[in-house]
């Protein structure tokens, strides 16, 4: 009950949207080939899930999570180090921003040449912009760290590793989470898009959407798109929950310094 009370705005928005959709299709204002009725889409979903989509969802999620893992494992420590050693950052700052300006999807052919047609290149492509955005956020978070707390690190004779892991990591964590949220949507967009182009074993959510569309199974196409959207919302929700948990100590007002 509580859950409904807290989320009634979002729920009524979604409900309203489906209502308009139902009215539009019931009155035949739009050709059902272009926009099938919501109940037809809903009826198609269980069959799709059984047919292929469970496996597709698992595979796509696995690729997105693998990309995020790679991005975090490399992006966070390197970003924190660069934020800590500003002189090193000055050296790589230009090239880094140049790399960030190149659309990741434009690099896909290169990834195929280097890594070959396989899981590696899909994950690498999604990991690449995710890593950059997490890294840049970690750099700026660490660079904006509270100087008075870094003074404490010097007082206590912390070495570089301890300063980064015990102080800078937490100082930069709010900013790192901003990066991770952006990275989540980058990864999902890229994985789904790449799956449409190369269907390894004809699997993956993107491939599913593409195959339904190209065989004119329009209700299924809508269903698969909505499932992809739902996955995006769920991933974002998980990251938000994680963020609230890991930043539960954060002062509301940053009155320091």
């Amino acid at each position: 009950m509580d859950w409904f009370r807290r989320n009634w705005r979002a729920l009524s928005f979604v409900g309203g949207l489906i209502g308009v959709w139902a009215i539009v299709t019931a009155l035949r204002l739009v050709d059902p080939i272009i926009l099938p009725a919501p109940w037809n889409v809903a009826r198609a979903v269980p069959g799709m899930l059984r047919e292929r989509l469970f496996a597709d969802i698992a595979l796509t999620l696995g690729r997105v999570l693998a990309a995020l893992l790679v991005a975090c494992v490399f992006g966070i420590p390197v970003g924190l180090f660069l934020g800590y050693r500003q002189r090193a950052y000055k050296v790589v700052e230009g090239p880094l921003h140049a790399l960030r300006s190149v659309p990741a999807s434009a690099l896909f052919p290169l990834f195929l040449i280097v890594a070959g047609v396989g899981e590696t290149s899909i994950v690498a492509l999604a990991a690449y912009p995710s890593l950059l955005v997490i890294l840049v956020n970690a750099v700026s978070g660490a660079a904006l760290a509270n100087q008075r707390r870094l003074y404490q690190a010097r007082l206590l004779n912390l070495n570089s590793w301890q300063t980064v892991s015990d102080v800078l990591f937490y100082e930069a964590l709010p900013s790192i989470f901003d990066g991770i949220r952006t990275a989540v949507s980058y990864s999902l967009v890229l994985v789904v898009a790449v799956e449409m182009f190369i269907g390894l074993g004809e699997r993956g959510l993107g491939r599913g959407i593409y195959l339904y569309q190209s065989s004119y199974r329009i209700p299924e196409t809508y269903g698969a798109i909505m499932i992809a959207g739902t996955i995006g919302i769920l991933l974002n929700w998980v990251v938000t929950k994680l963020q609230h948990h890991m930043l539960r100590w954060l002062p509301n007002v940053r009155e320091e310094q």
């Binding site: 509270n146 008075r148 707390r149 003074y151 404490q152 010097r154 007082l155 206590l156 004779n157 015990d166 102080v167 937490y170 964590l173 100590w249 954060l250 002062p251 009155e255 320091e256 310094q257």
Partner: peptide, 30 residues
């Protein structure tokens, strides 16, 4: 003998603690 023998405690007490540590952890960490 070491840098820790001379301490300056900031006007804003939040600058003098690690907010990601609990009260007990804050006292124990140094």
């Amino acid at each position: 003998t070491g840098p820790s023998d001379l301490v300056y405690v900031d006007q804003h007490p939040m600058n003098g603690v690690f907010p990601w540590q609990t009260v007990l952890e804050n006292v124990r960490y140094p």
